[in-house]
Simulated assay, not measured.
Amino acid sequence: MTSPQTIADFTVKLPGGKDLSLADKTGKVLLVVNTASKCGFTPQYDGLEALWKKYGDRGFEVLAFPCNQFGGQEPGTADEIESFCKVNFGVSFPLMAKIEVNGDGADPLYQWLKAQAPGVLGTKAVKWNFTKFLIGRDGKVVRRYAPTDKPEKLAADIEALL
Rank of each mutant, 00 (worst) to 15 (best):
K98W: 13
E49R: 05
I99S: 07
E49Y: 03
Q116G: 07
M96Y: 04
S37D: 12
F89C: 06
V91G: 01
P118R: 07
G72M: 10
E74W: 00
D107Y: 07
V62G: 02
L51D: 00
T35G: 02
G27Q: 08
V32Y: 00
A97D: 14
K114F: 10
P66V: 11
F70D: 03
G71Q: 04
S92M: 08
I99A: 04
F60N: 00
W112T: 09
G59E: 10
L31R: 03
I81F: 03
I81R: 04
T26A: 14
D104Q: 12
S83C: 05
F41H: 12
Q111I: 12
T26H: 06
Y110P: 00
S92R: 12
S37N: 13
W52F: 14
G59C: 10
A23E: 11
L48H: 05
R58Q: 15
V33H: 04
D46Q: 10
T77R: 05
F93P: 01
F93T: 00
F93W: 05
V33D: 04
A106M: 07
A106I: 02
P118W: 10
T26M: 10
N88H: 14
G119F: 05
G103W: 01
K98M: 12
A64D: 01
D79A: 15
Q116H: 03
V91N: 01
G40Y: 04
K114N: 03
K25L: 12
K54L: 11
E100R: 10
